[in-house]
Amino acid sequence: MTTPMDATMPMVEAHGVHKSYGAVEVLRGVDLTVARGEVTCLIGPSGSGKSTLLRCINHLEKHDAGELRVDGHLVGYEAREGKLYERNDKQICAERSRIGMVFQRFNLFQHLTVLDNVTIGQVKVRGVSNDAAAVRARELLARVGLVDKEKNYPSQLSGGQQQRVAIARALAMEPKLMLFDEPTSALDPELVGEVLDVMKDLAKSGMTMIVVTHEMGFAREVANSLYFLDQGVIEESGNPREVLVNPRSARLQSFLSKVL
């Protein structure tokens, strides 16, 4: 096995990943490689399995077949002495805590203030002291442009502000990988920009990101690679500036004609 310290080793590697819900096969052999420090955009029609793939990567769902590695480790298993040992709940939680996830519907904790939303994971999962967590939370809130909102409850914020808090909450866990599931799809058009700006900054800082999005402008401008997922398989992939300009497959062509 390769050591996780190897800088050339990809952050995420999927080979033939399958996932079914009952009789419905949602992922039908997905291959994907995400290099460290790069931004990968994942596009595809609704129901093609984009969310499911992200959820498999941070083990919110268990994939049925195929090989899925994050940071060199098999997701959910440990290889020892030629055998695969299923990880216990505690190990899975620890793994997951280093993968940040941002949701379409923000999912901020409604009963906690903005500051508490950003400190709770640090304190309860990583064991950081309250004071240190608050210091880090304030840094992150400043970074996403929300210094004066720390005492507010999520319901008192606009969608764009909530999504920026959600990004700060994920970053507070010092993730090595950030997953974004349509982070701007629930936002009013005029609020999309403020969230994309935060994500661009994050990309510049060298964060490894997988972004499910319909924002083709963002994909073209920021992404290092682009994957088009259709009916549970990667139909086309490559440099976004080439793939989006000259789509080869008929499916991507028809998809792009609908979203552009």
Binding site: R96, M101, F109, V125, R169
Partner: peptide, 17 residues
Amino acid sequence: DEGQIEAATSLGMTRSQ
């Protein structure tokens, strides 16, 4: 809301947390 549970889980919280 189920999204609250997903968010907590993705932060690495255990089921009891």
